[in-house]
């Protein structure tokens, strides 16, 4: 563990809390893409199946359980409790291409080891899972401030993982090219969002697309 990955994980944790706060406070999931949330749940379930095969640490185990449980809870809030506030007409990204593409890459590069296929699938999928949300954002042209804080924390956590990997490469000779490339793609997808977040929200202005 290093400070970069610790802060990254805490940011990821914070993003979940911010999203839950937004949904609870406004009693609405408007502006949130159910498809992206579904993809994140799939990411967590497929990546954290090693809960049953390996024990890393209490920290590692509890974080995994937290992410799986909260992501499914968010799906429940969006699909059932606050379903009246969700507009599927705004959430129209074709996720089957993201799922299919991730699975294909995982099969190609995994030597057909099941746990490795699932892990790689989750890494590739996570790198593009924000696309339905960004697509929805581009269609509405604006976002609630709290939603932008959620997206900043979510986008920022993998950016910090990039620094964590740089640190681990230099200090431990730790190599993980698949994670590096997927993490870079994942962070790059947020660059437009980060720019608007920095120039508007952090100056007290509303998040609006030009």
């Amino acid at each position: 563990m290093n400070i970069f990955r610790l802060v990254a994980d805490l940011m990821h944790l914070a993003s979940i809390f911010i999203l839950l706060l937004k949904i609870q406070k406004t009693r609405s999931c408007s502006g949130i893409s159910f498809k992206s949330q579904l993809l994140y749940s799939i990411v967590f379930v497929t990546r954290y199946l090693d809960l049953f095969t390996a024990f890393i640490s209490l920290y590692n185990t509890s974080m995994k359980i937290f992410f799986i449980a909260t992501s499914i809870y968010i799906l429940y809030l969006m699909k059932f409790k606050f379903r009246a506030t969700y507009d599927p007409n705004l959430d129209t990204f074709r996720v089957e291409f993201l799922l299919g593409g991730s699975l294909l890459l995982a099969l190609i590069f995994s030597d057909f080891v099941l746990m490795e296929i699932l892990w790689q699938f989750s890494i590739y999928l996570e790198s593009v899972a924000i696309l339905p949300q960004l697509f929805m954002l581009s269609r509405t042209g604006e976002a609630e401030t709290i939603t932008t804080h959620y997206l900043f924390a979510l986008g920022g956590y993998r950016a910090l993982y990039l620094i964590n990997w740089l640190w681990r490469f230099v200090t431990e000779s730790h190599v993980d090219k698949i994670s590096w490339i997927a993490g870079a793609v994942q962070t790059a997808l947020y660059s437009d969002f980060f720019y608007i977040y920095y120039t508007k929200v952090l100056h007290g202005k509303k998040f609006e697309l030009p």
Partner: peptide, 10 residues
């Protein structure tokens, strides 16, 4: 491309 080492990150 990727070693099948034990994954210790989230």
């Amino acid at each position: 491309l990727s070693p099948h080492r034990e994954k210790d990150e989230l």
